[in-house]
Simulated assay, not measured.
Amino acid sequence: MKTTLTVFLKEVRENLRDKRTVMSALLYGPLLGPVIFVMIMHTVLTRELDKADQPIKVPVIGAQYAPNLIDALRQQGFVPQPPVADPEAAVRNQDADIVLRIPEDFGKAWRQGETSQVELIYDSSQRDTDGSVDRVKRMLDAYVRHQGAMRLVARGLSPAMMVPVSIDERDQATPQSRAGQLFAMMPYFFVLTIFMGGMYLAIDLTAGERERQSLEPLFANPVPRWKVFLGKLSAICVFSLVSLVISVIGFGICGRFIPAERMGMVLDLGPSFAVRVLLMMLPLIILLASLQTLVAAFAKSYREAQTYLSVLMLVPALPSILLSAMPIKVANWMYAVPLLGQQVGITQLLRGGELGMQQIAMCFASGLVLAIVVALITAHVYRSERLAISV
Score class of each variant (00 low, 15 high):
residue 2 K to V: 14
residue 7 V to D: 03
residue 9 L to W: 14
residue 10 K to S: 06
residue 13 R to G: 06
residue 14 E to I: 05
residue 18 D to P: 01
residue 37 F to R: 04
residue 42 H to G: 09
residue 43 T to A: 13
residue 43 T to Q: 11
residue 45 L to A: 12
residue 49 L to H: 14
residue 58 V to Y: 03
residue 59 P to E: 07
residue 60 V to Q: 10
residue 65 Y to G: 09
residue 67 P to L: 08
residue 77 G to P: 02
residue 84 V to Y: 03
residue 86 D to C: 04
residue 91 V to W: 00
residue 92 R to A: 07
residue 93 N to K: 15
residue 93 N to I: 09
residue 101 R to F: 09
residue 104 E to H: 10
residue 107 G to E: 06
residue 107 G to N: 13
residue 108 K to N: 11
residue 115 T to C: 08
residue 127 R to I: 14
residue 142 A to S: 14
residue 153 V to G: 08
residue 172 Q to T: 14
residue 173 A to T: 15
residue 178 R to F: 08
residue 185 M to E: 10
residue 186 M to N: 07
residue 191 V to A: 12
residue 194 I to K: 08
residue 194 I to F: 11
residue 196 M to P: 00
residue 198 G to H: 02
residue 205 L to S: 06
residue 205 L to I: 01
residue 207 A to Y: 08
residue 211 E to K: 02
residue 217 P to N: 10
residue 219 F to Q: 09
residue 220 A to K: 11
residue 222 P to A: 05
residue 228 V to F: 06
residue 230 L to W: 05
residue 230 L to S: 07
residue 232 K to N: 06
residue 232 K to H: 00
residue 257 F to N: 01
residue 264 G to Y: 03
residue 272 S to E: 06
residue 273 F to K: 11
residue 274 A to Y: 11
residue 280 M to G: 12
residue 280 M to V: 06
residue 286 I to D: 02
residue 300 K to G: 07
residue 304 E to A: 13
residue 306 Q to G: 14
residue 311 V to G: 09
residue 311 V to P: 06
residue 315 V to Y: 05
residue 317 A to N: 10
residue 319 P to G: 10
residue 323 L to S: 09
residue 329 K to W: 12
residue 337 V to F: 03
residue 339 L to R: 05
residue 341 G to T: 04
residue 347 T to G: 07
residue 349 L to Y: 01
residue 354 E to R: 08
residue 357 M to F: 02
residue 359 Q to P: 12
residue 360 I to S: 07
residue 367 G to R: 07
residue 372 I to Y: 00
residue 372 I to F: 00
residue 372 I to V: 03
residue 377 I to R: 02
residue 380 H to R: 02
